[in-house]
Design a protein around this nucleic acid. Structure first.
Length: 874
RNA sequence: GCGGACGUGGCGGAACGGUAGACGCAGCGGACUUAAAAUCCGCAUCCUCCGGGAGUGUGGGUUCGAGUCCCACCGUCCGCACCA
């Protein structure tokens, strides 16, 4: 039985169009799609492939409206591409490792694995309600051994390829989550998840050597033309390339630091991007973490106390904001490289970072604001060496450093040069002496991936007392995470499981210990897009499948991942090329990126300050009141939905009352996809109203259509023109990601059909309604199926080809052209579409309104823009 | 401070340099109805002496013609921020 037979549509009754029962209709068609298996991705050499991917969700247990918008966008693309002849890969999975599962374990005594799997099951059911055209046979969850075991194999490959490092480093320690954070995960001195103030500790950590690829990752950005400029700019800033000079200053011999000074001393390496200001150098500055600073601190109480204080203050938000520059004089002296006898004092200063450059600078107070603030505070020299072109003889710097362009002064052999000339000259002279060289520096640091957590991918290495750190044997992969664990003590439960950590050394066979650190969950999401091409392969990827499906043609997700996730994924793609898991063409794995805006809602607050959910309030006599009490509530601005402000709507509730199609429709209408969209009750109702109207159009007309031929009447042609204009317009709008405009055209098209009437004839009306169904398919897929079935068509809308616009119907015979006089609109003429410019000009000048506006003046010039406008200039 | 995006009716937003305000929401009027809901049709930037005039954050400029391009401001949002 066809799903559209009247017997299965209890909403129909005699005497008029039925009401469209979304809940019943939608479930029926989802079952039909499942049965037909029409969303399963399959290789097909007769078609072009298209890989569309939305960022996979963390299985928190509940989908939210932001997911609906994100996945609805991807689904429009997937369905449209399928209809236009592509073989489409549109997969879904779960970013399933991470802290919330451990928190749930600690708070509720559940096991992270079970908790996560239950959440996945619930969310999968909720997602299913949306009618997304996903290939669920490729579902992956990063917490399953199938997946993380392959990730361990990748880790071992990356070790062999020299992409992994293990070293002691100062780390950002989150004292609440008890874990290490990457620099990117520290926001304003606080953990990105816990919000706790981050401390600095030294630990031995695993790193991916992403900074080795800094240049490649930077250059690659230029080729990403289909990425938002904003994201590329953010990545560029993050990588932070700078060009400068690395230069060693000799220190005058000093007994307090014999290793660094004197005949065989090491001196101090500094990095500068302003080598031209070398003659303005007033002091040398060291980071409190600099080895020389530490050496001095070891024998000097005052210096030790200062370094301790600077380190502590360094990460607090307050310290960063007040940002007062402080320092301590070490008493050491450095020799100026070009001026015999000039010596610079060596200071330790709190604003110098150990992990950038060499952890030491030369301070040029006149041309760097930080150095100037510091010099003024401690009475150090301020000697200007660059003067703007309009400066007089004795140019000086007062409270503001001069950082603009100009010519060198007070600089011996550099005097008169531009900054660029002086830079080159200094670099070449320093290089000639062997004291230094030109150097490119990056802000980007290596990616620390060790996490002292349980619920993550175990790092597959073994620690042996005699053999050192060894990779786990490949035949033992996956290193499974034990699922029975206890969280009754703080810290990582793996540390307390000798039966898991005890292992034989793969080299000598003696008892050894497994690594108990797990990987940052950003690792999991750095290659899932590649795994989707062969989700069940026994190796990380199947090279053949990856070669076929990669790259992702369209990636869609939130702009909050603009830096971290996307940079890591770009790094991983390169690492997987080097280890042979991806073809060389995949260095940039996402051809096009789209970042969608957030979903916002008004906020409601009761007089006593309680936040209220949208369900708890209603409109009564023009006021917004709390449903339960009738008391008026204050309505706040529409902001991003968040649990704390309670301005959230539940996708399930919306789907239950209005249907998934209405929710999808609303999420795509009105606002451009890249901008925030507002969820309003009237908006949902409007969406649901449109769906009912479209259904009535079909249901009311279907029985009278039959199979007739075109008759050639004016009304028929006019309806057919509307139909083909809608095809052309909606197609162009989907292609350019302008879903809101596509939807506006569908409103117009539906209105045009509604007004067309009997005179248009059954053939044109059938064509219009069938087209209406197809054009709705990417947006409201269930409705489209129901419409087509009601029109007596076989097969599925999901598998039907996209309609083609007939170019002859896109052009009218005549055209209304506005006529301007001196740039102001004065009249309108109707001319044949193919009229030549001379005829159009004549018609324009003959128009009565134009004639009146001219008021007898003689046209000097007439500009005819074919098909657009006429402008008469007097 | 640096980088980026953006400023259009009551609101969300349309507009290859060519009729500013498509489409939707809210509003107003009408039809249908005993009435309401639903539905359908219509009106809606402002001013006006009804000829027109003004109007896309502000001020200039380029152009036959500017919301759109250029310059300078003002404002909003986002990201980064002691990176030498």
């Amino acid at each position: 039985m066809s799903p559209a037979d009247d017997a299965s549509n209890p909403g129909r009754h005699e005497g008029g169009p039925s009401r469209y029962d979304a809940a019943a209709v939608e479930a029926r068609w989802r079952a039909a799609w499942d049965e037909a298996g029409c969303f399963r991705a399959s290789r097909d050499d007769a078609r072009q492939k298209y890989y569309v991917l939305e960022m996979f969700p963390y299985p928190s247990g509940r989908i939210h409206i932001g997911h609906v918008r994100n996945y609805a966008m991807g689904d429009v693309i997937a369905r449209y591409k399928r209809a236009t002849g592509f073989t489409v890969l549109h997969p879904m999975g779960w970013d399933a490792f991470g802290m919330p599962a451990e928190n749930a374990a600690m708070e509720r005594g559940v096991e992270p694995a079970g908790w996560t799997r239950e959440n996945i099951a619930v969310m999968k059911d909720q997602l299913a309600l949306m009618g997304l055209s996903l290939d669920w046979s490729r579902e992956i969850a990063t917490c399953e051994p199938d997946y993380y075991g392959q990730q361990q194999a990748l880790f071992l490959d990356m070790m062999e390829a020299g992409l992994v490092a293990r070293r002691a480093s100062m780390v950002n320690w989150d004292p609440v989550d008890n874990t290490v954070l990457a620099n990117e995960q520290v926001i304003d001195g606080r953990g990105w998840r816990s919000g706790a103030l981050v401390e600095r500790r030294e630990l031995t950590q695993w790193f991916f050597r992403i900074s080795d690829m800094a240049d490649e990752l930077l250059e690659g950005l230029d080729s990403l033309e289909k990425w938002p400029e904003k994201v590329r700019a953010m990545q560029r800033n993050w990588i932070g390339r700078s060009e400068g000079l690395e230069l060693r200053f000799d220190l005058t011999p000093d007994a307090r630091a014999p290793e660094w000074t004197g005949r065989d001393g090491r001196g101090v390496e500094v990095y500068t991007t302003r080598p031209d200001t070398i003659f303005g150098a007033g002091f040398l500055g060291l980071s409190p973490d600099h080895p020389l600073a530490k050496a001095i601190a070891a024998q000097n109480q005052e210096v030790a106390a200062f370094c301790e204080e600077a380190r502590r203050g360094g990460t607090t938000e307050a310290a960063l904001e007040t940002a007062e520059k402080t320092g301590v004089d070490t008493g050491l002296r450095a020799r100026h490289p070009f001026v015999d006898g000039r010596e610079l004092p060596v200071w330790i200063a709190n604003f110098i970072l150990m992990d950038y450059g060499s952890g030491a600078i030369f301070g040029c107070a006149a041309h760097d604001q930080r150095d100037l603030d510091f010099a003024r505070k401690y009475g150090l020299d301020v000697l200007p060496v660059v003067a703007p072109s309009d400066a007089d003889e004795d140019f000086t710097v007062d409270a503001e450093a001069y950082t603009g362009p100009g010519r060198l002064i007070n600089s011996r052999f550099l005097d008169g040069m531009t900054i660029e000339e002086a830079k080159a000259e200094v670099i070449s002279r320093i290089a000639a002496t062997g004291r230094g060289r030109a150097r490119v520096n990056y802000r980007l640091r290596d990616w620390g991936v060790s996490r002292q957590r349980y619920w993550g991918c175990p790092i597959p290495v073994i620690h042996c007392a005699t053999c050192g750190v060894l990779p786990a044997p490949r035949e033992n992969l996956p290193i499974r995470l034990p699922e029975k664990v206890s969280f009754d003590q703080p810290g990582n439960p793996l540390d307390r499981m000798p039966e898991w950590t005890r292992v034989a050394c793969p080299a000598c066979g003696a008892e050894a210990r497994r690594e108990t650190d797990t990987m940052d969950t950003f690792v999991d999401s750095s290659w899932y897009f590649a795994r989707f091409t062969a989700p069940h392969a026994e190796t990380p990827t199947d090279r053949d499948e990856a070669g076929y499906w990669m790259n992702v043609d369209q990636y869609i997700g939130g702009v909050e991942h603009a830096i971290l996730h996307l940079l890591y994924a770009r790094f991983f793609a390169r690492a997987m090329i080097r280890t042979g898991w991806l073809p060389a063409t995949c260095a940039e794995p996402f051809d096009a990126l789209f970042t969608q805006g957030m979903v916002c809602h008004e906020t409601y607050r009761a007089a006593d300050g309680r936040w209220l959910t949208p369900e708890e309030v209603e409109r009564r006599d023009g006021a917004t009141v709390e449903r339960a009490t009738g008391a008026e509530v204050s309505v706040g601005p529409s902001i991003k939905m968040s649990k704390s402000k309670k301005n959230v709507v539940s996708p399930e509730a919306i789907v239950a009352t209005h249907g998934a199609d209405a929710a999808r429709w609303l999420m795509l209408s009105d606002s451009p996809p890249e901008r925030d969209v507002e969820w309003t009750a009237s908006g949902v109702e409007g969406a649901a109203r449109h769906i009912q109207r479209v259904w009535r159009l079909v249901d009311g007309a279907a029985d009278a259509l039959g199979q007739a031929a075109f008759i050639g009447a004016d009304a028929e042609i006019s309806l057919r023109r509307a139909t083909h204009r809608a095809i052309a317009g909606v197609t162009a709008d989907i292609e350019s990601f302008a879903f809101n405009k596509a939807i506006a055209r569908l409103y117009e098209f539906a209105a045009a059909i509604g007004q067309s009437g009997e005179a248009a004839g059954p053939a044109a009306r059938r064509e219009a309604l069938e087209t209406l169904a197809l054009l709705h398919m990417p947006f409201t897929p269930h409705l489209a199926e129901e419409m087509r079935a009601r029109l007596g068509l076989g097969g599925l809308a999901a598998e039907a080809p996209w309609p083609q616009a007939d170019p002859t119907l896109l052009r009218a015979d005549t055209l209304r052209l506005p006529v301007q006089v001196n740039g102001k609109r004065r009249g309108e003429i109707e001319v044949p579409t193919d009229a030549d410019p001379a005829a159009v000009e004549a018609a324009a000048l003959a128009d009565a309104d134009v004639h009146r506006a001219l008021a007898g003046a003689k046209p000097r010039k007439v500009i005819v823009v074919p098909g657009r406008i006429v402008n008469v200039v007097v």
